[in-house]
């Protein structure tokens, strides 16, 4: 019997390596569950979970919802574009109204950094951060590390390069925290304008040259260029970005080594990753999606189960 050190999952920064290991071990069990002929277990019967998404999402919301349904939780979905938020309601009021309907757990995505942390100080329900602005996306980092563990047996000692738009990426920050806690070596690679100025303070290597990064790493986690978050021009054109930082099958084949290619999705095919690279045997992108359901089941099971 074990429990997480926190009543919420706000970010990887707040949890311990033991927490991550417990989540992984529990996810192993749930991965077996979701490959059964009947994929549903009754664990979270009578637990109500609200998915509150103030920002768009396909994968994460579907993955959470499927995980909740496989655990037999009651689910309500809420997206900001169709709600009273448009009429000027505050975040706290919105959430308190949902909680008044006896909801036990909140899964929230918000464009503002720290929104779930703020919420956790004011309400009693368990909170899972499904992405807050450019800050953290903990379940994505967990499923990424879990997928590396599954593919390469362990995360410890592996070399992972995170490539692309590091500046605007919550996936990058959560991944750095998770991989460092599990003992991996981490490098970030991208054009200097898309790398945060003090990123090396987090104990990661910094590389501008894609070829050097690929030659160094066991795993390349490729990120999307987040044009929607870019207020100014960070590089001359997408075409130029693609020429310098786009990964193709040809580049991967020239490495003459085993390399694992990951992408949190959605992929911009032909920009950061070519179609033939995304569909190659190096890529474990769809395994990541499958593991996402198991990881989220594990997180919600562990949070909902710790009642005292």
């Amino acid at each position: 019997m074990s429990r997480l050190s926190q009543p919420h999952l706000l970010g990887i920064k707040n949890i311990t390596p033991d927490d991550i290991e417990l989540i992984f071990e529990t996810a192993d069990n749930f991965k077996e569950v979701i490959n059964r002929p009947i994929k549903k277990v009754p664990s979270l019967r009578d637990v109500s979970i609200a998915n509150i998404f103030f920002e768009n999402s396909t994968r994460t919301r579907l993955s959470f919802e499927l995980a909740q349904k496989r655990l037999s939780a009651d689910v309500i979905n809420f997206s900001a574009s169709t709600s009273s938020v448009k009429k000027g309601e505050t975040l706290l009021d919105t959430v308190n109204n949902i909680l008044a309907m006896k909801v036990d757990m909140i899964v929230m995505r918000h464009a503002s950094v720290g929104a779930p942390h703020f919420l956790s100080k004011h309400i009693k329900a368990n909170i899972i951060n499904a992405g807050d602005g450019t800050h953290e996306h903990p379940t994505q980092a967990l499923l990424d590390a879990y997928s590396i563990r599954e593919k390469l047996k362990t995360v410890k000692g592996k070399k992972v390069a995170i490539i692309g738009d590091i500046l605007h990426s919550r996936v990058a920050l959560s991944n750095i925290f998770a991989l460092k806690k599990l003992g991996a070596e981490v490098m970030v690679c991208g054009p200097p304008t898309l790398l945060p100025k003090f990123i090396s303070k987090l104990g990661v290597k910094v590389e501008w040259d894609l070829q050097k990064a690929l030659a160094w790493c066991d795993v390349a986690n490729v990120l999307r260029i987040q044009l929607e978050r870019q207020q100014i021009k960070y590089f001359p054109s997408l075409r130029e970005y693609s020429l310098y930082y786009g990964i193709t099958k040809k580049i991967l084949d020239q490495l003459k080594k085993e390399i694992v290619v990951m992408h949190p999705g959605p992929i911009n095919r032909g920009v950061e990753l070519s179609s033939d690279a995304a569909d190659s045997s190096h890529a474990i992108i769809l395994d990541q999606v499958e593991n996402g359901v198991a990881i989220r089941m594990a997180v919600m099971y562990l949070l909902a189960g710790a009642t005292a």
């Binding site: 074990s2 077996e32 909902a304």
Partner: peptide, 23 residues
């Protein structure tokens, strides 16, 4: 067979029971 996820004391004990392998 592991029956942890089907137990009726989930959320009635302080800590969730740890599951073992089902095969």
């Amino acid at each position: 067979l592991d029956a942890t996820f089907h137990r009726d004391d989930f959320r009635r004990r302080e800590i969730p029971a740890k599951a073992s392998e089902t095969k």
